[in-house]
Design a protein around this nucleic acid. Structure first.
Length: 277
DNA sequence: CAAGTTACCTGACGGC
DNA sequence: TGCCGTCAGGTAACTT
């Protein structure tokens, strides 16, 4: 489900519900997500704490409490977060619930359980950016996300540009949908060897990545099958997809049918006319 | 080391 | 109707 725009939409939706609230109790389904859920540690460190801030880094949601404890949530492919009254019946695949002091609770629902939850006590949270996110690339909107950054990493690498963009060590938050969409917008073939991109192409690609992510956030994200934001609403950026999921349909620029191929195991969509290798 | 493949897990869908 | 194979927004451990 979630790439950067979807996590950002969830973050923005949750922030007013969570900020200033006290976490009063925590419940788990008992099933592991990608890692075991740190249930005992959360009970020790989180219960009784007031939430100070809700933020996003890459595709991770960060919930910080007044004593600087950090709850980190990743949604994997199918994870979703919502705010519900405590008495709301549980749905299948509701795996973690954080009860609040106002009768509501935050719920993590994750069908495939590729999501994950971490709890960093204050002394670890302090070093989060190096210890937890040490291998994570810059945010696409940060001023360190530059052509020089990409060109330094791409030098001498023959990897397809699409795989490079989706690597979280290169740049944060870009997954399969937005990699496909950004490369179409830039007129760059997804299989192109990443070391061959020139500075002006990187400049334009960065600009288009930012534009597409910004528009997707404004649309409330993309709803492929089941994404909903914290208020239970679907996103609608998917109506703006130019190539993703459009195999065989005419390119919206030139009318040639969109093609689909596998690149590093991921579905890749492109216009063979508008995107040259 | 770089790049490709597989595994993790569940559910939806298409073909037969 | 039902069974089976394939595929899916992510990440990391493997293999080559």
């Amino acid at each position: 489900m979630p790439e950067l725009p979807e996590v950002e939409v969830i973050c923005l939706g949750l922030r007013p519900h969570l900020t200033g609230r006290v976490i009063t109790a925590i419940q788990c389904s008992g099933k592991d997500l990608r890692h075991p859920v740190p249930y005992s540690l959360m009970n020790e460190r989180l219960c009784g704490q007031t939430i100070r801030a809700v933020a996003r880094r890459a595709k991770y949601l960060l919930i910080e409490t007044e004593d600087q404890t950090l709850l980190i949530i990743h949604l994997g492919m199918t994870g979703n977060l919502g705010i519900f009254p405590h008495a709301t019946p549980l749905k299948i695949h509701d795996h973690v619930r954080w009860q609040l002091d106002n009768g509501l609770e935050l719920r993590l629902n994750d069908t495939r359980r590729f999501g994950a939850v971490w709890l960093l006590p204050p002394e670890q949270a302090k070093n989060m950016e190096t210890d937890f996110f040490g291998n994570t690339g810059p945010e696409p909107f940060s001023n360190t996300c530059t052509p020089a950054h990409f060109m330094a990493l791409a030098r001498a690498r023959k990897q397809p540009v699409k795989t490079f963009l989706m690597d979280s060590r290169t740049v944060a938050g870009i997954g399969n949908i937005y990699a496909n969409e950004a490369l179409f917008a830039a007129g760059i073939h997804p299989s192109r060897e990443v070391c061959t991109l020139q500075e002006d192409e990187w400049q334009r690609l960065i600009q288009l990545i930012r534009q597409i992510l910004t528009r997707a956030i404004a649309c409330g994200g993309s709803t492929i099958s089941d994404f909903i934001n914290a208020s239970g609403e679907s996103g609608y950026f998917q109506v703006n997809f130019q190539v993703y999921g459009r195999k065989g349909q005419p390119c919206l620029q030139c009318g040639i049918p969109i093609e689909k191929t596998q690149i590093s195991g991921r579905a890749s969509y492109f216009c063979p006319n508008c995107q040259k290798t």
